[in-house]
Design a protein around this nucleic acid. Structure first.
Length: 885
RNA sequence: GGACUCGUAGCUCAGCUGGUUAGAGCGUUCGCUUGACGUGCGAAAGGUCAGUGGUUCGAAUCCACUCGAGUCCACCA
């Protein structure tokens, strides 16, 4: 015990401790149960870890969720719940493929088509294998107490089986269909994007007014568009049928400028009369609204762009715009505007700020395009069930089966559910779950199977090709809570741990992930995936900006851990935060929590160095006021913390612990315990309080607490019972007395500080104790030691000019050299002014008849008492001022 | 266009269902090698709770509006 270093150095300690935890096997609930029978009685706690990208690096968002989830896991485990926290990684299809493709391009100047599907997948899998370890190590560095023996990977054979099983089930239930739709196409990623993967950003665009002449008569119509290049793929011009200006032209033929293709003017009520000229060019191939109008009017579709975003050669020659072939959209726009100007078709341009869609991954502009895709039908009734998929998801929250914390997101969730459209699940990339659909080259039969198909079921032909597309990553993630527990097999784990207790994740993926989990779980196993959703906020930098690598403001949790320790990082991510609200973090904040960890370390060091620790934690007896107070506070704090954790108020719980540890235990109780005649039972109380405190702190700061614990115990702190102390609430009187005592000490210190007296020197202090305060005499040694005074309980010679404070309405003198009446006068007048205001306010309040009549009596009593106290103080202060003048 | 959140000390935020002199941390100022800790100890300064109006005996807290900051959804041809 002599060798404990002065400063806590987390570095050497943390890795060692984590290894011991992991080696103990106690992160696995099966072992927990055999270790002690108390781990069943309190029930089950289960939680799936939101899988980080397998190839990603740990960022602050991960650090945040790992902290919060680990607090929950450790607290539940200590509380005797059979606790499973299941970790895993996500294959993150698009992101991962992009990274690998980019790498290959940089080093070998080859793209995916040069390599071919098989080779690319081989390379990606190798890359994942190589890099996956780094995120797992990082999760360990945070101290996460998850069960690694059950770790899962979204692209593993087991989870892939779950994915294909669901796909087939949905297909057989006719809830999956293939259709030609307008989708969001990212030419950078070479794939479609779901609606919510498109981010809209305002752009200072231009509205072009283009004249389309009639083909068989004079005149023409002027359309307004922000995307003139898509006019090449126009297949109609539309007006609103109610628009009196244009009614008469409906059915007339009109010429597409430059291309000279003949179009028809159609009428559709979705055309907004007030926008632009009220005439809309219809480009079904490249605009969602136009696509819908085109469907209704059976218009042909021209798909003018290739998958990599250039004007398609074949389409352009088929439809008479070959001169634009192979241009990018941007180049085509420039050329077209020039030519429209030359031809006199461009009437005018206007500035028009509007939103343009960008890919949330690559940042490329998203082009609406028509293609064949697979969809999940969310509005159709599920065969044999009462609801559609989206109704299932809405019901779970509406009926309260699933609670969302904070509650405000329930509304957002439901609103989103109402507007949910069919979910496009096919992606034109190669890395991911390949769509289990086979097309027969012989008879054209389409077969969906869980296992690979060798022969066509209908014609026995072997000329089969599997659909080249893969599934949206969120499709597999949406099965996460149950696929990780063994589904479709009916495993014991599934029975025991599903539905999970809590899902903890960021509000930014409420729709991407949370909603789809509810939807798919409801469909697949007719269950909810979790009972409570706890949503945390986004981690932002000191300026409130979202942290991102590209902005260069990202803090690396691993660097922070190296510098300050995982415990300090964890505290800065859970204290002072509230659910659903973003949090700002900067290094000074982490430093201050590092300071606390060190303080706690030193508190323990002191206790362990002074007294013998006694592992049996029976509540020791209180002998002094301070003893009674600290034991009472301990009970109070323990139950408050537990209460707050039950409400998922991690910030509140941590803060309460911190205040108790620093401001009650360290600043007062330990200081008092150093005084000779106060020491009596602190020998037993200090180690007791420390032991309880270590348990309470452990979920928050697992490393340092375990390390301290290991100084006197062989058993891991991780599996100690979470303190449930005998509810013996702090006697009101004890708390009050302690506060009064603290006030007196502070008053005396205050006078010293005001007069710049040497803090070491011991002065005499006189106080005239009224009877009600006579108990203070028993605490003399505390006051004398902490305020560095010699107390006298006789009245002082009034003629002696000395500073005094009005403590509890009593005068407390401090006998010091260099008393300055002028200074004292200024100080006193300031206090009097404050007191005057209080007296005045209370007086006017008491003068109101309505107040006396309507306010509850206890409030009136309180105000009256306060008024008396203030009045008394005022009188005494006035007298003091008089004597000083 | 629809919805939501926020506006409290220089900074970051607590203040639950309305009731003490509105709190904490960081920062600032002053003083300290007090035998666990200078990553520490003691003390102080600093706020008309965004604004206006209303409900109430009483509003930072409830309601309405205004101003300001932000987020999400939809859509803008």
């Amino acid at each position: 015990m002599k060798e404990i270093p002065k400063t806590y150095l987390p570095g050497p300690v943390e890795n060692d401790i984590y290894q011991k935890w992991e080696a103990s096997g106690l992160f696995n609930p099966d072992n927990l149960e055999t270790a002690s029978d108390r781990y069943w009685k309190a029930g089950v706690f289960s939680m799936s870890m939101p899988p980080p990208n397998a190839t990603g690096e740990l960022h602050m968002g991960h650090a945040l969720f790992l902290t919060v989830q680990d607090i929950l896991a450790r607290w539940s485990r200590m509380s005797g719940k059979k606790t499973l926290w299941l970790p895993g990684t996500d294959h993150a299809a698009i992101a991962t493929q992009n990274v690998v493709e980019r790498k290959i391009w940089e080093t070998e100047k080859k793209n995916r088509h040069d390599l071919g599907r098989e080779e690319l997948l081989k390379r990606i899998n190798e890359f994942v294998e190589k890099t996956r370890g780094s995120i797992q190590t990082a999760v360990r560095k945070m101290g996460a107490s998850c069960d690694w023996s059950r770790e899962k990977y979204t692209l593993s054979p087991e989870l892939s089986l779950a994915v294909r099983t669901i796909f087939k089930k949905l297909y057989d239930d006719k809830l999956i269909y293939r259709g030609e739709r307008i989708v969001n196409w990212c030419s950078g990623c070479g794939t479609t994007l779901a609606n919510d993967e498109v981010e809209y950003h305002p752009v200072a665009g231009q509205l072009y007014y283009i004249r389309y002449p009639f083909s068989k008569q004079k005149g023409g119509l002027t359309i307004a568009t922000t995307r003139p290049e898509t006019m090449l793929a126009d297949t109609a011009v539309a007006v609103n049928p109610k628009d009196s200006r244009y009614k008469k032209y409906v059915g007339k033929n009109i010429m597409l400028p430059l291309v000279n293709r003949e179009l028809v003017v159609i009428a559709d009520e979705r055309v907004d009369c007030d926008f632009g000229t009220g005439v809309l060019k219809i480009t079904p191939g490249h605009d969602p609204l136009d696509f819908e109008i085109g469907q209704k009017h059976r218009l042909p579709i021209i798909n003018m762009f290739t998958p990599d975003g250039r004007v398609d050669e074949k389409e352009s020659s088929d439809h008479g715009f070959e001169e634009y072939a192979n241009l990018t959209a941007e180049e085509a726009r420039g050329k077209i505007i020039e030519e429209l100007k030359e031809g006199g078709y461009l009437e005018k341009t206007e500035d028009l700020p509007h939103n343009v869609g960008y890919c949330y991954r690559s940042g490329d502009i998203v082009e609406p395009m028509v293609s064949k895709q697979w969809f999940v039908s969310v509005n159709q009734k599920i065969p044999g069930r009462k609801f559609s998929l989206k109704e299932i998801a809405a019901q779970a929250v509406k009926t309260g089966s699933i609670k969302i914390v904070p509650k405000k997101f329930e509304k957002t969730y439901l609103q989103w559910m109402e507007n949910l459209k069919d979910w496009c699940i096919s992606r034109q990339i190669w890395f991911g779950h390949r769509i289990p659909v086979w097309y027969c080259g012989n008879c054209g039969e389409i077969t969906v199977e869980v296992d690979a198909l060798a022969k066509c079921k209908s014609c026995q032909s072997t000329a089969l090709t599997q659909d080249p597309d893969t599934l949206d990553t969120w499709f597999s993630s949406s099965l996460w809570t149950f696929s990780t527990l063994g589904w479709p097999a009916e495993t014991p784990d599934l029975k025991t741990y599903h539905p999970t207790t809590v899902l903890e994740t960021g509000y930014d993926i409420l729709f991407f992930w949370v909603a789809r989990m509810v939807l798919m779980t409801g469909y697949a196993i007719d269950d909810i995936p979790f009972r409570t959703v706890y949503l945390h906020g986004l981690v932002r930098d000191a300026q409130g900006k979202k942290m991102s690598k590209s902005k260069g403001n990202a803090m690396s949790p691993l660097e922070i851990i190296q510098k300050y320790g995982a415990d300090a990082l964890r505290l800065s991510l859970c204290i002072g935060i509230s659910p659903g609200n973003d949090l700002k973090i900067d290094e000074t904040k982490i430093q201050s929590f590092r300071n606390f960890v060190n303080k706690f370390w030193n508190i323990s060091r002191y206790i362990l160095g002074t007294v013998k620790i006694n592992e049996k934690s029976e509540t020791p007896k209180a002998e002094t006021l301070a003893d009674e107070w600290i034991l009472g506070r301990m009970v109070e704090v323990a139950s408050d913390v537990d209460e707050k954790l039950k409400k998922l108020d991690f910030g509140g719980a941590g803060e309460e612990l911190l205040k108790f540890t620093w401001n009650d235990l360290a600043d007062w109780y330990i200081e008092i315990s150093k005084i000779k005649d106060q020491r009596s039972n602190s020998q037993e109380i200090l180690p007791y309080v420390l032991a309880v405190l270590l348990k309470l702190w452990h979920p928050f700061i697992p490393f340092v607490s375990e390390h301290i614990w290991s100084q006197f115990s062989k058993e891991s702190l991780m599996i100690q019972e979470y303190p449930v102390l005998e509810v013996r609430s702090l006697k009101l009187e004890v708390g009050k007395k302690m506060q009064t005592l603290r006030d007196l000490v502070t008053d005396l210190r205050n006078i010293r500080a005001e007069y710049r007296q040497d803090p070491k020197e011991i002065f005499s202090s006189y106080l005239e104790l009224p009877k009600r305060l006579s108990w203070i005499k028993e605490q003399t040694s505390i006051i004398e030691k902490l305020a560095r005074v010699k107390l006298n309980f006789e009245s002082i010679d009034e003629t002696k000019k000395m500073p005094y404070s009005l403590w509890e309405g009593t005068r407390v003198y401090l006998i010091i050299p260099g008393f300055d009446p002028k200074k004292e006068l200024v100080l006193t007048e300031k206090i009097l002014k404050e007191t005057d205001e209080i007296v005045k306010r209370l007086e006017t309040q008491l003068a109101k008849k309505d107040f006396l009549k309507k306010a509850p009596p206890e409030i009136v009593e309180k105000i009256k008492a306060d008024f008396e106290t203030a009045k008394d103080r005022q009188t005494k202060l006035q007298a003091k001022i008089k004597s000083l003048k």
